[in-house]
Amino acid sequence: MQPEARILPVTPAQSETRAQLALILLGGGVFLAAALFMTLGARGSWAFVLQFRGMKLLGLILIAHAVAVSTVLFQTVTANRILTPSIMGFDALFVLSSTLLIAFMGSVQLSGLDPRLLFAARLIVMTLFSMALYRWLFLGEEQSLHRLLLTGVVFGIFLRTLAEFVQRMLDPNEFMVLSDMLFASFTKIDPVLMGIGWALVLAVTLWLARNLARLDVIGLGRPVAVNLGIRWRRDVLLVLALVSVLVAVSTALVGPVTFFGLLAASLARLAVGTTRHAVLLPAASLTAMLLLIGGQTLLERLFAFNTALGIVIEFFGGVVFLILLLKGGRR
């Protein structure tokens, strides 16, 4: 019996109740956090405060959802619970794609471009890259988690360093444009990008909602899934493309966050105690929202910090990553 079986529900009825309770509590928590975020410590005109904070809130919800869902999907197709798109370097790939775009096209051409078109270009370059780079890792007939983990970490570092290397060779003006493009934060979100982000993420979510059963089958691992008629190659590539889109949206809005997705997905798994995507995906998304909105409210309103949320979340996410690694990583 698994060591963690002690904290998991014992009967299907318990499991059902536990999952429902967890979803309700998480939903309530997010609602409360959002209400506090919108109203706490507001001064001056309410119309202004609500509009200003509402934009921020929409951004936080979008990022939380994108990061959490991409992590769960990624863990489903790779059949593990330690790896996340960011550990495998997906966000580094997005940074690299943007850097290469600037390096080859020049900032002058790019600054004249419609930001939506620019984002589309970055997204397409990144998705193509991720398909080319990662397909051989995930489509193999026999996978070793350890090989995947090692390759992923090396890939991540390689891509990050490559991006930095190209950035160093950029003309200072172009580097400025790039920095503007890359280094956003949880509190400074571009409204145009957010519009595109919402549209993309809603489209992905809609597809997911119609394919929950298929994701459950994919989660059984390649041999069982192929036996049940999943076209593994096509479906895994499709899910990886969706992961690319979600990572691109969140990276474009707030820059790379390495361990946030892992933290949210792991906490959600613990909370719901089931691997059914119909429960797990919303739970992960709500957990991420609670962490992000709750954390932002605490730090911004109670402690009057502005930039520390990313650091705090990364710290706890990193701790979870280490715990999972030490537990042997299979589950």
């Binding site: 299907p12 989660g219 089931t274 691997t275 589950r331």
Partner: peptide, 10 residues
């Protein structure tokens, strides 16, 4: 047949 998912027999 190692499963990552936690399932009942049914």
């Amino acid at each position: 047949n190692h499963l990552n998912a936690r399932l009942t027999v049914k």
